[in-house]
Design a binder for these strands. Structure first.
Lengths: 219, 219
DNA sequence: TAGATTGTTAATCGATTAACAATC
DNA sequence: TAGATTGTTAATCGATTAACAATC
């Protein structure tokens, strides 16, 4: 029972999303001093089948020890490796509104290895002000800044109408990845990674689900 | 060519997510004074096939007019209906850290019909303080508040370790929907809707994608 | 050892895409 | 009318689940 192929398969998005959840879970387990965990236990905690969990873990470069399940310490290490959680990533936040400023102040990011090296806005009144210890810079500086500081990922926290223009600017600056927080879809060339955490969109999804559940109830 | 069955099919999550994007897009089109849009144009703007777009629009209670494509005004109305965007939704924000406070101050929510009626934290030092015009309340008050104010949706913006406990409390309070912003998966009974916008998790996904693209480049 | 749990293959399910007659 | 574009069915693709021999 060996993990034959050395993690050469691309991880599909649904599996990748689940792996981030397992990562939070295994950290919790380690804090609780749990040494081993079975695929069934992981599945129960995440509303999945054990089969799905085992398929997901096939993407990791580690294997179960004996029939006690998976060693939590090794599990965490394998996940750290998948996420490059050893390395520190450089972030730029685009948009210094409430959300952008909160992200820049949010300790969670630095704690997880994501250091915010710059925050940008197009509003002249905001430029030059400080968010914590980070100075708000003009959008005109984005390109040079990304290149000089080797920014890996940009977080787009601007109004929806501006999102695509900002994305275009970032792509032209040579950014590797974009986290899109806006309601809008952004189009980028294939070499650039985009992941979404669209808060307002999620509220619309919830509205729909709640609304249709209520309608069903009336029938 | 009639939209025979009256929107009786449940919208699967991937389609629902795309519909939120079309919603942002059609608003942009209306501002630009565009009257008609084809499935192909929608597809191009969202990196999809026209076939997927037409399948998605089948979930809406509207139909194309002539062979010019879809009327943008009717399209927007159909989407508004799906999302219950006519109605105002009541939100509670759980967690008054940087992120929770930013959400409470973020004008975008109110503008979209999501009114924040309460914000809660477990830190005694924060309780009683104000975020804008909203007073931070104790977690002990969540249950009564949700019931008395008829809160529809709660946004969980607490540290990952606390997320499940908060979710349990919200479920017990009779909440209808939860927006989970934490790294962790939360488990809820089947009557409660959960949608996720996990910002830190998305950064991990990006890290992985960038990292493996770089490794591929070396081969 | 016997029981538990894995890694992996095959079967199922659901979502996306292709194809095309219908139609304005 | 002819061309464009739809609504809808069928085909394909990918992800999830079931099943089970391997094994500690």
């Amino acid at each position: 029972m060996s993990n034959s192929s050395k993690q050469r398969k691309k991880i599909p998005p649904p599996a990748l999303k689940r792996l981030t959840k397992y990562y939070a879970f295994v950290q919790e387990l380690l804090e609780q001093g749990v040494d081993y965990i079975s695929s069934q236990q992981i599945a129960d905690r995440h509303g999945l089948t054990s089969s799905t969990v085992r398929q997901d873990l096939l993407y990791l470069d580690f294997t179960s020890q004996s029939q006690r399940g998976y060693n939590t310490y090794e599990f965490k290490d394998a996940l750290k490796c998948v996420f490059g959680a050893d390395k520190t990533w450089k972030l730029a936040v685009i948009g210094a509104g409430n959300l952008g400023q909160a992200l820049a102040l949010h300790g969670e990011f630095a704690r997880r290895g994501f250091n915010i090296s710059g925050i940008f806005d197009s509003d002249p009144k905001k430029i030059g002000q400080f968010v914590g210890s980070t100075k708000i810079r003009s959008m005109d500086e984005v390109s040079v800044f990304v290149q000089e500081h080797g920014v890996d990922v940009a977080v787009i926290a601007v109004p929806a109408q501006a999102a695509q223009d900002v994305a275009d600017l970032l792509v032209a600056s040579g950014i590797k990845g974009i986290l899109n927080l806006t309601l809008t879809h952004i189009v980028v060339p294939s070499g650039v990674a985009v992941v979404e955490a669209r808060i307002v969109a999620s509220l619309f999804e919830l509205s729909h689900i709640i609304k249709s559940a209520e309608l069903d109830g009336l029938e």
